[in-house]
């Protein structure tokens, strides 16, 4: 190994050690507000098995811990396998609750999140029928990133049956008018406010998250709270969405308002691990 390559390898390894040392889940005490257990959940995540994500199902669970999430739904594209894998892993090795689910892609009509289902729901059917199929399994149906191009898939029958709609999604940070379109969709029916990161590996999981006001910290507790629309979401520009009574309780609570995926202060180890890692990797390519 040349001296320059040795230096590059050393910088890379030092960065990896620094980043790994800083890689700890934030300490969080359970949050109780208004007699409810408040859980931070991300109901729309994708794994690399096989849903064009960048992390394995067990990697999603471990990352959820680091991002201060209490629960996630792993929602494979027209697929339940990764959700089942993540669910089994979490039960064995994590405090994070994993809800099996799927993202039903019925392009170009609708994208629909099914949370808490055990059997695949067909994508070659109108949204209302897919929602009925989700409900028959005891799950909840959430409109995924319902920007204007997906509206036509949700007719009156589907809107009447929907449980929730994503009102905070990373699209609001990148696409002009997305926030207004999500708000306009949510105004069409009484829907639970949902914040989801649609995590594929670009950007942190939990960037948008839902605070679920559950009777208990369990899969059933989360599903029941979603069905009862007991949710609060902190969106872009300081907006807060959800059940008005719960919004009043939650809006000023810093434990909920300060999203660790956004507000976490990058420490020296973080910065060194990122920059050193890039420099080390570039050195390994060059030399």
């Amino acid at each position: 190994m040349t001296p320059a390559r040795s230096v590059a390898a050393g910088v890379f390894v030092a960065s990896l050690v620094a980043g790994t040392a800083a890689d700890r889940a934030p300490a969080r005490a359970p949050i109780e507000i208004g007699g409810y257990r408040v859980l931070a959940v991300d109901l729309h995540t994708h794994s690399s098995m096989w849903s064009d994500g960048a992390l394995t199902p067990w990697g999603l669970v471990l990352e959820a811990e680091r991002q201060g999430l209490d629960a996630i739904a792993i929602t494979g594209h027209n697929d339940l396998f990764d959700g089942r894998v993540g669910h089994a892993f979490a039960r064995a090795a994590s405090r994070v609750i994993v809800l099996p689910g799927e993202e039903i892609l019925s392009d170009p009509d609708y994208h629909l999140i099914a949370v808490g289902v055990r059997e695949l729901v067909g994508f070659r059917q109108p949204a209302a029928d897919a929602i009925d199929a989700i409900h028959r399994q005891g799950g909840v149906a959430i409109a995924a990133h319902p920007i204007r191009e997906f509206w036509h898939g949700y007719d009156a029958a589907a809107l009447q049956r929907l449980d929730g709609a994503e009102i905070c999604h990373p699209l609001i940070f990148g696409r002009e008018g997305a926030q207004q379109e999500l708000e306009a969709f949510a105004a069409r029916a009484p829907l639970a406010a949902i914040g989801s990161s649609d995590a594929h590996g670009v950007g942190p999981m939990g960037l948008c998250r839902t605070y679920v006001f559950a009777g208990e910290a369990s899969e059933r507790g989360i599903i029941d709270a979603l069905r009862a629309k007991r949710t609060v979401v902190f969106g872009g520009g300081g907006a807060v969405y959800g059940d008005p009574a719960l919004v009043r309780l939650a809006a000023g609570d810093a434990r909920l308002r300060d999203n660790p995926a956004v507000k976490r202060k990058a420490g020296v180890l973080d910065v060194f691990s990122r920059l050193g890692g890039i420099i080390g990797l570039a050195g390994l390519l060059l030399f």
Binding site: S15, L16, A18, G19, T20, A22, D23, S47, S48, M49, G53, A54, L55, T56, W58, G59, L62, E63, R66, A199, G201, V202, G203, P204, M205, A266, L269, D270, S273, R274, G276, G277, I278, L281
Partner: peptide, 23 residues
């Protein structure tokens, strides 16, 4: 390494290995 920095904001052994398995 790219997955680690993009998904976690830092270079960690956990994410580097997970990203390598994924890809």
């Amino acid at each position: 390494s790219t997955v680690s920095i993009l998904a976690g904001g830092r270079l960690t052994a956990r994410l580097v290995v997970d990203g390598a398995i994924s890809f």
